[in-house]
């Protein structure tokens, strides 16, 4: 990536791209449905990525990449990695159909969902990736539905590789892309990517928040192979988690929560964590 991209200070999404491309190397082509990254990359005639990049319509992350992949295969360029880079809205809402189609066909590409938990490009509206209790411009009090479990949906497609990653753990993130690069078929990586303007958090705290989400067991880092084999990377189950409250109170988007709501969120985090532990390969 070149410097000079136009992301906000403390943007998790731009850091995520830099790390992902480190793992993938230069033999990579990007497919970019509408999201904050459509802006971050820079206006015509600029681009901040050093590799070929196809901007595409909001809901076409799975389908446009299928076309690029097919073309490269026909042209005998099977060694080039094709990566779709989409937001949580482009993945979990409007693009879910095309993603599911591509995953079901086991198209040979990597699909990244960088998750800032709302539609940020259009100014902070809820997505199905927005967590319960969060303020957005379309959930003026708080969101009343839990975050969609996209990893479970993806796992149900039995694709060869799926993983969660976080900008707070760059080594883990890069290693996952290096691993994914060598696998054939559909690979899915879900990256937790804080967004200071959308979360009403401090730009200098983005990494800290991302780390806290892992330490609170709210966004654990794990891998799923063939939809079956679950491996936990972080946090260590033997370590005491930090209370979710500490994570929530550093973000203005959760300011409407009372103690009861916070307890509910904690209960939910604990349940999801237990579910994950139950799935782990023993």
């Amino acid at each position: 990536m070149y410097s000079g991209h136009v992301a906000c200070p403390g943007c998790g999404a731009s850091l995520a791209m830099r790390l992902a491309l480190k793992g993938l190397g230069k033999k990579t082509m990007l497919v970019l449905p509408a999201c904050c990254w459509s802006i971050i990359d820079g206006p015509f005639p600029y681009s901040s990525t050093k590799i070929p990049l196809l901007h595409t319509a909001f809901e076409t992350g799975g389908s446009a990449a299928s076309g690029v992949r097919a073309a490269l295969d026909v042209l005998g360029k099977k060694d080039i990695t094709v990566m779709t880079w989409a937001g949580d809205g482009g993945t979990m809402d409007i693009g879910l159909q095309a993603l599911s189609g591509a995953a079901e066909r086991n198209e040979n590409f990597i699909y990244t969902c960088y998750d800032n938990e709302a539609y940020m490009n259009t100014g902070i509206q809820r997505s199905s990736g927005t967590p319960w209790g969060a303020w957005t411009t379309t959930t003026p009090n708080k969101k009343e539905q839990p975050k969609k479990d996209i990893m479970a949906i993806i796992a149900a497609h039995k694709i060869p590789y799926a993983a969660t990653a976080s900008v707070a753990y760059p080594d883990d993130l890069i290693a996952k892309y290096k691993k994914a690069r060598k696998i054939k078929g559909t690979r899915f990586i879900h990256i937790f990517a804080p967004c200071p303007p959308g979360w009403k958090s401090l730009p200098e705290e983005s990494i800290k928040l991302a780390r806290m989400a892992v330490q609170a067991r709210s966004f654990p880092l794990y891998e799923v192979e063939n939809g079956m084999k679950y491996t936990l990377n972080r946090p260590n189950p033997n370590e005491k988690p930090i209370p979710i409250k500490e994570y929530l109170q550093r973000q203005g988007r959760f300011r409407n929560l009372n103690d009861q709501s916070t307890k509910l969120i904690q209960k939910n985090v604990d349940q999801n964590w237990q579910n994950l532990l139950n799935k782990l390969d023993k």
Partner: peptide, 27 residues
């Protein structure tokens, strides 16, 4: 000798043609 992508909708059919064409093939 073509690659046939059996997409899940017409919307995806055109998106895939766009990707294939930009990558340099007759779609």
């Amino acid at each position: 000798k073509a690659k046939f992508i059996k997409v899940e909708s017409e919307h995806s059919a055109m998106a895939a043609c766009i990707g294939a064409s930009i990558a340099g093939t007759r779609a």
